[in-house]
Amino acid sequence: MKKISLVQMKENQKGKVAEVLGGSSLQHRMMSLGVYPGSNITKLSHFALRGPVAVKVGRAVLALGHGMASKVIVSLE
């Protein structure tokens, strides 16, 4: 099982969230949006020049800033 960050994932790639790095307040926010260890996540798109990343979690689509996206570690199937 390979672990990479959301930023490193390719478009349309699927995985399971392994962990959310960073402080507890970021973890709380991610958690309440459905990004927690074990949740299924699909990367939808990525904007160039350290732009935001769009992902699908559960039935919701989220846009995350580049820095946040690099703190979400995903394990690929």
């Binding site: 926010r29 949006l33 689509v61 989220l62 846009a63 995350l64 800033g65 820095g67 946040m68």
Partner: peptide, 9 residues
């Protein structure tokens, strides 16, 4: 702070 937004349908 960074951008974090739910994109509605």
């Amino acid at each position: 702070p960074e951008f974090l937004l739910e994109i509605p349908p």
